[in-house]
Design a protein around this nucleic acid. Sequence first.
DNA 1: AATATAAAAATAATCGATTATTTGTCAAGC
DNA 2: GCTTGACAAATAATCGATTATTTTTATATT
Lengths: 245, 245
Amino acid sequence: MDSSDDSGHGAPTEEDAPPATFADDGKNTIGSQLASRLREAIISGELEAGSKINLDKARKTFNVSLSPLREGLARLISDGLVEFQDNRGYRVAPISLANLEEVTTLREELEVFALRESIRMGDIEWEGNIMRALHRLNRTERDAARPETLEHWEALHREFHLTLISGCGKPLLLHFCNLLLNLNDRYRRAFLIRTSGDRNVGQEHSEIAQGAVVRDVDYACEKLRQHIHRTGTNLRNHLATKGVV
Amino acid sequence: MDSSDDSGHGAPTEEDAPPATFADDGKNTIGSQLASRLREAIISGELEAGSKINLDKARKTFNVSLSPLREGLARLISDGLVEFQDNRGYRVAPISLANLEEVTTLREELEVFALRESIRMGDIEWEGNIMRALHRLNRTERDAARPETLEHWEALHREFHLTLISGCGKPLLLHFCNLLLNLNDRYRRAFLIRTSGDRNVGQEHSEIAQGAVVRDVDYACEKLRQHIHRTGTNLRNHLATKGVV
DNA sequence: AATATAAAAATAATCGATTATTTGTCAAGC
DNA sequence: GCTTGACAAATAATCGATTATTTTTATATT
């Protein structure tokens, strides 16, 4: 949309265009952009779990004013990534063994329920989306040596899980699951998780996907439940190793 | 993750300040007070579902500045009571048949699960709290002629349901349930629901409570599920009557 | 008349400065 | 020595004004 000059409006109004790579996809306001950046910073561990968020420092770090900063932080509260207390400000939500276990348990309940509903309600479009997400995920290599590949894999992994349940037709339920996935990813990325030797995660995903598209509710749901449970156990071991309570 | 505001079901002996006389509670921030007032205004239907919230008018109505107003509204987003769009502002979350059905379904899933966990984990203290909440609820008359008694009953009813699941030891799950209860109450209060003739709600509550304290998981959970389901059906009929899609 | 365009009004977002609250420090009194 | 309270510094909350965006209205063009 930039190059060729359209209807001759000689006006020199063209000024510093924002980096063309940033699609104008609804993240217009500073507050929204900030929410995204902060979310990523928290999930990736760049902002330490449990740490206080000093508004003044954050304001300088992100080069923004107070209003959008508060706006962004307020939004992360609904994501469960930030906690707030009147007159005492914000802090990054802490991580703990108990929290990890709750997240895992609730994922087993909610994500499995959402899959069940998706299988019941989903259409062909949904099936296709699953196969696509599965393919992209399984064809992507995870190379521990290159962090950027890990991030990419994480994004595809998340996408796969969300696609699985995207057919359930229940916005609130999807919101909950999305939130739980956010929380879960913090633990995962905190340890740059390498799957334990006795797991073939790729196959696990394939089994879940296959079960879903052939509408075998019990099979797919049980496979998903086990998948979530194993991941939880895996993460818990890492956490215990690090001595987190 | 919970905002530190009102709706306290945590404080046992708390007497509620009767009318919403403004200001001088002094202790909380304006943003928090606003969040409470707005939450009540939305749940009670004072602010119409789906309607736009004009910041300038709201600012004048509530006699506050923009910052705390936005702060308060942002918090209601996590409660599912307000929706937001960049550069287009806030609006009261709409109600619909589909939403009511989802809320009911998810309550059946989550609240029942939370009760199951509470029965497994709850201590004597928890049992006592249930009996107290039940007693207060059953001893309170609901007089359709006097709205303030309805509000009081609603508060006790909400308190009872939250107490039932308060022993589960899962903060996130409680947060979800609390949110669902908020959404559910909007429908309930929209119709000043009078229970249909074939229900004895008082007895339903008693059965659930009894089952819980004697730790009969299956009995208590099934009774709760039916209770939620019946309420959902009841509300759906009212909604259909009003022609809501 | 219908569509497109430009100016104006309404509304939302942001900023910089000010006010309120909490936290930290230190001396006085017991 | 320990608590208490006054003060100061740090931090959070709020305000009023300014800037940016969207919506509405008016005008022109086909």
